[in-house]
Nucleic acid binder design. Structure first.
Length: 565
RNA sequence: UGGGGCGUAGCCAAGCGGUAAGGCACGGGACUUUGGAUCCUGGAUUCGUAGGUUCGAAUCCUACCGCCCCAGCCA
């Protein structure tokens, strides 16, 4: 039977299915996500995580979480914790297979020794600068290190002494003996181990030599039995070295190596109106352009979570984006579409008036309050209804009134009628202004025959607007988030800095927003659709401080706004 | 002027010798007590370009053009 026929095919699945057909790896599929704990995960990582995880699931395979912690200088426990949080939130499951590459440092040390014994690795005393010079250039071959032909015994002894801490950082390295003339610079006797007298977040001071990624990663994949090692395109050049390490591991460490792991590269994820590089994201945080790694404008997993985006939205988005080798930048609008699609039938409807304009219904009795019934989810009776108080004084959205309406404006205007959602049709009778000529209030009348659901007025109004009873309104804070940058590709075509393209309106905070009373009593982390405005998330972080703050996850599509352009 | 990749609609992306899937965006229409949602509907004579092979090419071959990555003791 075909695997998950509803999933789009992609070149990686094609490769895996072929491997399966050929009986490679005993029919096993085993993937992994190998983050370095040196920063926060972003949506690009989410693509890699979901890709690895979904492949493992679809082919009845396994998925590991493995921290690539080979560089103690950059790595911290804090990041291990945040990464684990993010993966849990995304909903992937590595069962009991949480690994650290540092767990197997001892095995890798032994592997290095065997490479030395096989004459395939040597200790090199060249300085970092010299190594660079000896490496040659893109167009010229390198030259062999004078230390390249040391005896096995000398190499073994020197390597042991490196481990014992006898040499300072940078004084010596262990190198693979491959080919200084290779067109691929990665094959010009790559460094396997370097001396680093640094405390490691897991192994402490046990080691002062640490393996390089190119040595560690393939070995660890093969050790864990990873059949398909997915990584991004820039590692393509490293594949020959990856294979070299795996083949040697298979030959020299057969007692522990589980399979001939295979590296497959795919294009990394980019999206318009944001940046993805760790450096730039850190800059945004450190220079205070955002409130932190979890600022809802950040493309970090933590930021998206705080914004109110759901893991399901991210997953369906990534599934539709697909996987390929071509460099690409996905349109933010596509992401927003999947966020809306996911929330459409999950988020209950509520009303809040973001930019209030007072309306007084002059023919409504002063003290009369009526409860009107509104659907929580139009089209889904199971979601029930709620009672919302309606009275003489209300708020409507400022933009739902125009003194001199253009054609096709279906909302309120002098002498015109509009329906208040779930309640009555009102007509604007008078516009009240202050001394400066600003509209401060609308005097309207309502039609008693027009009550929603039992309308006998015979009127047909085109516009339906949302409202909140002034007397009963809860007051909430609303954070309107928008794209972080005003430029599609902030890292591009700029003589200036990407910071110059920050969107000054990426966050607009609205205080004392009148809202349906229920919005003040919702559980932190709840998501709602504010009618005609967008999807909002009750920020759990603010809630802990006793504040009611709703983050706008994404706006609704607004065809009127589009028409105005 | 070394090596490795990539070029299918505005943006993603299937396709793997048999006559261009799908999604987003965009346009038109229907419906609508969210100008939301939903539902129809339109768009590549053409797959970077030019040749060639073939009854037949986005798919194979050749050449060219354009873009990306690589000279960390980072991952």
């Amino acid at each position: 039977m075909a695997y998950e026929p509803e999933r789009d095919s992609n070149f990686i699945r094609t490769i895996i299915e072929k491997d399966l057909e050929e009986g490679k790896n005993g029919g096993r599929v085993h993937t992994r996500f190998p983050p370095e704990p040196n920063g926060y995960l972003h949506i690009g990582h989410a693509k890699a995580i979901l890709l690895n995880y979904s492949i493992a699931q679809d082919y009845k395979g396994k998925f590991n979480l493995r921290f690539d912690d080979t560089n103690p200088i950059k790595e911290e426990q804090e990041f291990v914790d945040s990464i684990i949080d993010d993966l849990h939130w995304l909903g992937v499951d590595w069962e009991d297979r949480l690994f650290f590459t540092s767990d197997s440092f001892e095995l890798k040390y032994e592997f290095a020794r065997r490479l030395i014994k096989a004459g395939r690795a040597y200790v090199c005393d060249l300085s970092p600068e010299e190594i660079r010079e000896y490496r040659g250039t893109l167009t010229e071959p390198g030259t062999e290190s004078p230390y390249r032909n040391r005896s096995v015994d000398e190499n073994l002894e020197l390597f042991e002494r490196m481990r014992q801490g006898e040499f300072p950082d940078g004084s010596r390295v262990l190198r693979a003996k491959i080919d200084m003339a290779s067109g691929n610079l990665n094959m010009r006797d790559p460094v396997l181990y370097r001396i680093l007298h640094a405390k490691h977040h897991r192994t402490g001071d046990k080691w002062c030599i640490y393996p390089m990624y190119d040595f560690d990663h393939p070995f660890t994949d093969a050790l864990e039995g990873i059949t398909h090692s997915l990584c991004s395109i820039e590692y393509s050049d490293h594949r020959p070295l990856y294979d070299w390490v795996v083949e040697n591991a298979l030959e020299l460490m057969p007692e522990v190596i589980k399979c001939r792991s295979r590296q497959i590269e795919f294009a990394r994820f980019n999206m318009t109106y944001t940046v993805m590089s760790k450096r730039k994201l850190r800059c945004l945080v450190e220079e205070g352009h955002v409130s932190g790694w979890d600022d809802p404008r950040m493309p970090t997993i933590a930021g998206l979570r705080r914004r109110g985006v759901t893991p399901a939205a991210i997953a369906s988005f990534m599934e539709e984006v697909g996987v390929a080798r071509a460099e690409s930048t996905v349109d933010l609008a596509m992401f927003e579409h999947f966020i809306r699609q996911d929330l459409e039938d999950k988020a209950l409807r509520m009303m809040a008036v973001l930019h209030p304009l007072k309306v007084v219904i002059t023919n409504w009795p002063e003290e009369k309050i009526e409860l009107v019934e509104l659907e929580n989810m139009p089209g889904d009776e199971g979601a029930g209804t709620r009672q919302v108080p309606f009275g003489r004084e209300l708020y409507i959205e400022q933009e739902d009134f125009m003194e001199e309406p253009p054609k096709k404006f279906y909302r309120l205007a002098p002498g015109r009628e509009v329906r208040l959602k779930g309640a009555y049709i009102i007509r604007c009778e008078e516009v009240i202004k202050d001394a400066e000529g600003n509209i401060t209030e609308l005097r309207c009348t309502y039609d008693p025959q027009s009550k929603s659901g039992q309308d006998t007025s015979g009127k047909k109004v085109r516009g339906v607007i949302h409202w909140v009873s002034a007397r009963h309104a809860a007051r909430i804070t609303v954070r309107l988030y928008d794209k972080l940058f005003i430029k599609e590709n902030p890292e591009d075509e700029g003589e200036g800095d990407f910071i110059d393209y920050l969107n000054p309106e990426s966050l607009v905070v609205l205080e004392d927003v009148p809202a349906e009373p229920a919005l003040a009593e919702a559980a932190p982390g709840s998501r709602f659709q504010f009618l005609r405005k967008g999807f909002f998330y009750l920020d759990p972080v603010a809630a802990r401080e006793g504040r009611i703050v709703y983050n706008r996850i994404v706006s609704l599509k607004d065809s009127w706004a589009k028409m105005k352009k």
